[in-house]
Design a binder for these strands. Sequence first.
DNA 1: GGAATTATTGCTCATGTGAGCAGACACGGA
DNA 2: TCCGTGTCTGCTCACATGAGCAATAATTCC
Lengths: 318, 318
Amino acid sequence: MSNTDELLSIRAAELYYEENQTQDEIGVILRLTRWKVGRLLASAKANGFIRIEIVHPRARRLPIERRLRESTGLTDAIVVSSAGVSTDAELQSRTAQAAADYLTSLRPIPRTLGISWGRTLHDVSLHLKQGWAPGVNVVQINGGVSLNQRTGTAASTAVTIAHKADGSATLLPSPAIFERLETKQAMETDRTVAGVLALARNAQAFLFSAGQADANSALVDSGYLTVEQINELVARGAVGDVVGRYIDQHGCIVDPELNERTVGIQIDQLRRAPLTIAVISGRTKHTIARAVVRNGLCTVLVTDEDTANALLQEKDTP
Amino acid sequence: MSNTDELLSIRAAELYYEENQTQDEIGVILRLTRWKVGRLLASAKANGFIRIEIVHPRARRLPIERRLRESTGLTDAIVVSSAGVSTDAELQSRTAQAAADYLTSLRPIPRTLGISWGRTLHDVSLHLKQGWAPGVNVVQINGGVSLNQRTGTAASTAVTIAHKADGSATLLPSPAIFERLETKQAMETDRTVAGVLALARNAQAFLFSAGQADANSALVDSGYLTVEQINELVARGAVGDVVGRYIDQHGCIVDPELNERTVGIQIDQLRRAPLTIAVISGRTKHTIARAVVRNGLCTVLVTDEDTANALLQEKDTP
DNA sequence: GGAATTATTGCTCATGTGAGCAGACACGGA
DNA sequence: TCCGTGTCTGCTCACATGAGCAATAATTCC
């Protein structure tokens, strides 16, 4: 298109979108036929000069969702808009809200829902509405922060989700990681614990988040790992953790010995499950999100626009 | 509007604006009549959830221009969009381009055009296209940086504007500010200088910018004023300079003695002229822009979206 | 509880707009 | 010069959409 046509298309767009003029009226102003105006507006759109944004905390980006589904083979992708967001916390809150929405609209409603724990899932639990489902049995799928801690987030997350669904919560009464393998194995032979783990393995749906591999990890906060241990894991290729287990960019367990001492369902069990919902959001989680999606650790991804775009860029330039 | 309707309006907007679905189709998806969908979309717009931006260096903001005209009594206002701009320099370039466009489209074409000098006007001169007007006599209206300096911006600005209009430039061969009043008065009695000044006073149109009152002022750069002098002026209420003369927020000369030693047309002559085009852009120039507009120093303002909004805010909360 | 008022819904109709097409035009090669 | 090729323009027609208006539902007030 000629340079002067480009300018005209901008003038037309101003009158059309900002002044709500009809193409006819614009034609009179710019001394063009209304068809020419229509074509100019179309070209302005085609050239990407017209940007339409939906500015709302609940806004999603359907085109990005579609592209994500197509390029990754995800069953479903939920991408929240980051338009007008200033802080990462706000973005994560939006994502949690979207995850809550997704859970609520999920059909068929899962009878048992396996969940991990963390800030993100806690956020999701808070965004769910009372009565979001008619009775769901929520099962913890990995060891939690603690049973005795008053507002042990792990337990409270599960209980809240279950309570709001008028259902029940089955907690996994175990630390996330044992120091000694023997203790962990002994624990697993306990009938109660074994029962919970069996229930977890057979959950109809899984909901989990992922943590980036750095000093801010929830596992460090909770005291299960030291910053040194994390650095060691990173040095060995770890990009983050899923249900308490550290994986590299190929989705492989980074430290098998550590993995053995970790309580909860295995990565492979997650990989085989038919409905696994990952909620991952924030600038720092782009790499772990990529690892999760690329290696089929989830069938549904709930994330933010920026993370989604990062995933798509990966695909475009391999 | 109810909360659930608000959410629905967002869902509808996603399908309408991002997926290009028809309101009919959206109705089917959301189980609504197409009229309801139409209303939801209208409400989304009314609530400001839909943001349409024209992203182009030449894009203007017509609604803001109109509001500016209405609230300030300007004959004309040109406001360039700041969408997608990262640096102040880029914004100033856009503004200069818009000023060049405005000059080019000006009817009737002024036979004599009085101009000041500075980075901004130099920028304008560069953006003008060869043959932008059929012969214009460009006259300098205030003393310039120098005659002997190779690319003396002041002279080159005037010459460029005139040359591109196939016209002539009349330079004012004088410093901006004299140290002694007597020297300045002697200079003004010179027939050549007096002639130029008379021509300047009677110009059909004026084009000028304005400088903020701080150490970065062009008058400091050129050595006419020291940083200390500027600070003194600021202490006395100066917000910036117009054609080399420092004014306060009420448009009054801050230092009459200094003003007397300044060569060029008076502020009042500018105020009385029927067509005075001010080109002012950038974050640092909000206050001087306000002083210029509020005190009727220009009849036409060319500026950027942010500056314009700052002006409008002023008006809304007095 | 019933009447009055207001908000919401479904609809008709006029208008605005994009797809598709035929003719006009510009350009380049024989 | 002529003819083919591709682009652009003006137009018809079908569809999408907003304005306006009854009918209905919800709410408020007595």
